[in-house]
Nucleic acid binder design. Structure first.
Lengths: 236, 236
DNA sequence: CGAAAGTGCGTACGAGATAAACAGTGAGGG
DNA sequence: CCCTCACTGTTTATCTCGTACGCACTTTCG
């Protein structure tokens, strides 16, 4: 492996070999990332400071900088770690397999709501994310789609999962948010300018929070329908 | 308008009336938000500090807190301001109209790349964003979709625009990023474990950056195809 | 015409990321 | 065998930034 241009911590996530000199390390990247994920799961991204993570591990903040050169890298590794189980696929048909991939992705985001708030810093370079992509390409390989179309499909699906999780988390954080929200809108909207929005507020759909899975399943079905149409066309 | 539960700055964005007592204000919310947007456009979100924005306006940082109670509110207003022209629609057919809305949304994100990095803090409560939603609902009102389906459709589309902009901005920031990226992957991927990914790297699709608009148009077409199928089904 | 509400702003504090310097450690070359 | 030096964890210090607080000034209403 020649120079990859990647930060050392990312290379370490791929299992780069350690130098042999010097004292043994007291920690490991995995433990640090796991601790960081635990902190974020427990108290959110705002509570995720280097000192807090170090505290959980019983060391000092600066120790972490022997493993990660900046907090951003830690965040990148965290967003990779949550996808360990996202690429599990049982079917070999493209449609059910893509469905599994989509839900795997969504499951990761749902289990770790903070992940969607971490800005994407570049193209995927971490193991689990690339594993997900690889699996997706494998699943789509029997289809007549072009390489670009396969890529677009996967980016669309992962983006949709990310997007759905964003909405589900930030919108549905509180329990009876929708009634409150409807009330707020009812009070702030100039009535004559927003007729459709005001009308929909009285719909039971808006006043009760429906299960977020339904929304995702619906959107996914739309996309896969569109894709199926394209595949059928290209197959003829 | 009784109590909306919204921050004062958001109510101000809706044109709430000012108290009459006290000296006249030297600034206005609009000017502050515009200055903040200009800073972010010029130097990115990282350069956006309260003092920087105040500096551009010739006042002190703390003055801004008379208009906005926290930086988060300023960010919220910034993400609203960029959508001024996003809801312009000429057609009344649902498909072309939705296309216009989608591109309007994407245009906003493309013109202000930093916007996608601002975490969503809750359901939309700001004028331009709700205007976009209202327009979308109006456009979909002749269709046989349920209220929930209309809402899902619009959230899916706006999410897709956001998502596409995220990718386009963060991935394509540099000019010849793709060749570099392909090289990086080629060096970091364990060859036997990622056959499809490695194979696609040699595809011209991946080695040259294609116009990002193509990707969005493609994904949008998939979604609208899926939607059209549903509408046809429900119409019978 | 005061009081009260409202304004801009200087000061100060606290949190947090991280650079720099330092003392201990242990594998490999002589 | 031991010394060297790459490597380790840590302590201390710095710098940036958001924002609470309080002060002095300015309007308008009772």
């Amino acid at each position: 492996m020649t120079d990859t241009g990647l930060p050392a911590s990312i290379e370490a996530a791929w299992g780069a070999q350690r130098p042999t000199r010097g004292p043994k390390r007291a920690l490991s990247l995995d433990r640090i990332v796991a601790a960081a994920v635990a902190v974020a799961d427990a108290d959110g991204l705002d509570a995720l400071s280097m000192s807090r993570v170090a505290g959980e591990l019983g060391t000092s903040a600066m120790s972490l900088y022997r493993y990660v050169s900046a907090k951003d890298e830690l965040l990148t590794l965290m967003t990779d770690a949550i996808f360990i189980d996202a690429a599990a696929v049982t079917s070999s048909d493209w449609r059910p397999a893509l469905t599994e991939l989509a839900w795997g992705c969504l499951r990761a985001y749902r289990a770790h709501p903070w992940a969607v708030r971490i800005p994407i810093s570049g193209p995927p370079v971490t193991p689990h994310q690339l594993r997900w992509l690889e699996t997706g390409l494998a699943v789509l390989s029997p289809t007549p789609l072009t390489a670009a179309e396969k890529m677009s499909t996967l980016l669309l699906i992962s983006g949709m999962a990310r997007n759905d999780a964003t909405l589900a988390n930030d919108l549905g954080a509180q329990d009876n948010l929708m009634p409150t929200y409807a009330q707020t809108l009812g009070r702030i909207l100039p009535p004559q300018d927003f007729p459709h929005l005001l009308a929909i507020l009285t719909t039971p759909v808006m006043t009760q929070d429906d299960h977020p899975d339904v929304e995702f399943a619906w959107a996914l079905a739309r996309i896969l329908d569109g894709l199926a149409a394209l595949i059928t066309t290209k197959s003829e």
